[in-house]
């Protein structure tokens, strides 16, 4: 589904990703772990198409198509979803409007008519239950005045409504208490299907107790320095990141999976 080869990217002349290679197949959950500043969030933003980042080398292919050539909205329309680490507040636009506008844009890109508002209300109602949110949140402005936990749940709600093929969760666990973490994880797990895939970006192993990954990759200094199964996350929890960061020889391209 997604094949990244030797990806280099940065911001304002500073290279942050220094050769990432990664393959994600349908049905898989991949965890990207690593210390702060290792490039985890940059990778997530580059995959979603944030215009502030410049890709300086390598490739990313999504369903056989050059992902990096697409503007962010086309990536979304083709099924890529980024759950933001810092969801943006948009006073003046209600969640109800935002969800419907996004949903319809994706339908339009597939040549489908806009959804009937009543059908959409039913869909949202059902998805709200999945993330344990009240329907009154629909009339509130997007993320405006939301607590940290509410913002993260709202990201998962959007994901649940839009039904992406490839979901990228960028530090969705940060700032969540254990109950909120369970709610978020339950939402993500409920949406897993054999034909979609998830990339979980996280600093801590904690979330991976609830969303069990098929593969774990450790990112350090803009490269993947180690990949393994779910046990690698437990090892990182026990030993920290230092042993990997120190052991990574300079100038070695990231390990392909």
């Amino acid at each position: 589904m997604l094949e990244i080869i030797d990806l280099h990217a940065g911001i304002a002349d500073r290279e942050i990703l220094k050769g990432i290679s990664l393959t994600v197949r349908a049905g898989e959950v991949h965890a990207i772990m690593g210390p702060n500043g290792s490039g985890k969030s940059t990778l997530a933003q580059v995959l979603a198409g944030h215009p502030a980042y410049e890709v300086t080398g390598g490739s990313a292919t999504y369903d056989g198509e050059d992902l990096l050539a697409l503007p962010p909205e086309e990536r979304a329309q083709k099924g890529i979803f980024l759950a933001f680490q810092y969801p943006v507040e948009i006073p003046g636009v209600t969640n109800a409007y935002f969800l419907r506008a996004a949903y319809n844009e994706i339908r339009k890109s597939k040549g489908l008519d806009e959804i009937d508002p009543m059908d959409f209300a039913d869909l949202v109602e059902e998805r709200l239950r999945l993330v344990d949110m009240d329907r009154e949140m629909l009339q509130r402005a997007v993320n405006a005045g939301f607590s940290g936990g509410e913002k993260k749940r709202n990201e998962i709600l959007q994901m649940a409504v839009l039904g992406p093929r490839l979901a990228i969760l960028d530090e969705t666990d940060s700032g969540l208490d254990i109950d909120a973490l369970r709610v978020v994880a339950h939402g993500v797990n409920s949406l897993r299907r054999p034909d979609n895939a998830t990339i979980v970006v996280t600093h801590y192993q904690r979330l991976l107790n609830y969303i069990v990954p098929d593969r774990v990759h450790v990112l350090a200094g803009g490269r993947i320095v180690k990949s393994g199964g779910k046990d690698l996350a437990l090892e990182l929890e026990a030993r920290g990141y230092d042993w990997l960061v120190e052991a990574a020889p300079a100038g070695v391209a990231g390990a392909a999976v």
Partner: peptide, 20 residues
């Protein structure tokens, strides 16, 4: 970027933010 990452085109996203 947040709006575009949800599928709204660049012009629509500008429009919506200005209105908001």
């Amino acid at each position: 970027f947040y709006l575009r990452s949800r599928g709204l085109g660049a012009d629509d996203a500008k429009t919506l933010l200005t209105y908001a």
